[in-house]
Amino acid sequence: MPEKTYLQAISDGLRQEMRRDERVFVLGEDVGVYGGAFKVTVGLLEEFGPWRVIDAPLSEIAIVGGATGSALMGLRPVAELQFSDFVSCAWDQLVTVAAKQHFRAGTPVPMVLRLPSGGGFSGGPFHSQSPESAFTHVPGLKVVCPATPHDAKGLLATAVDDPNPVLYFEHKHLYRRIKGEVPDERYTIPFGKARIERAGDDITLVTWGAMVYTAAGAAAELQSEDVSVEIIDLRTLQPWDKEAVLESVAKTSKLLILHEDTRTSGFGAEIAAQVVEEAFEQLDAPIRRIAAPDTPIPFSPQLENAYIPQVEDVASALRELAAY
């Protein structure tokens, strides 16, 4: 099986979707000639032409509204927002129109919004956010956060198949740093099915996106201290695999939730609440959450390191849980 970067997996996956289904088209800023700000759509314009790879004006409302309208007419848009931060400009199109359309009018809106998200490279407050949690609070939207190249491609295929608006958060910090095996043939990965990144018995660590690698680093440290950590990569947040978390907690009785987004009302709060509701008696320790502090994401590397959870933060929380 070929090894690919996370970015290449998305790019190849997208090309494969466009080759197999002519309803699929790409719409976004600088996605054509330039190949996208992160080069995910490189080569697509040449292969599919200017009406399937559409360079849009700087116009998130037009991009998301355009995707919504064309999806209503039977196309399968995969729209790119240059940075997930700019999704705020298109909030109405997404939350007011697209998300509620099927509930109100019974008409599906099969569209994918690709949202490069996450920090770790001094992008500052407007190019580094992880806004996925906000959208889990909007009935009608699906939220996908792949961590591996394999998942990135499989979840993209599922997103294209899905008849609902899907927010596909691709973590910028994984684009070129992370490599993995990715099959050439098309495959899908079901939404709402978590992946066990690492099996363990003592503590359950639930996370997604780039934090999977932070979790893995911490779990490796704890291994040498004889604490075995089970890492669950949720892969999708809406829907999310509650069963996998409950099953793991039934085994470990301890839960740590880790995310890059800010703490208050982050999706970790929802996970904690549901585990308390359904598995309170199985817990041997208070649930721990590690998340970014409730501040905008800062620019300078020193501040950003303090903001984004680091391996050491996770390792020390795991130690405390282990000792509890």
Binding site: G65, G66, G69, S70, A71, M73, T96, R104, A105
Partner: peptide
């Protein structure tokens, strides 16, 4: 296509319908 209250949020959607026809 069913309108929403937020005005004129249907305008970009209407353009999207036309985009599909053009594509």
């Amino acid at each position: 296509v069913a309108m929403v209250s937020h005005l004129p949020a249907m305008m970009p959607v209407a353009v999207g319908l036309a985009l599909a026809f053009r594509i």
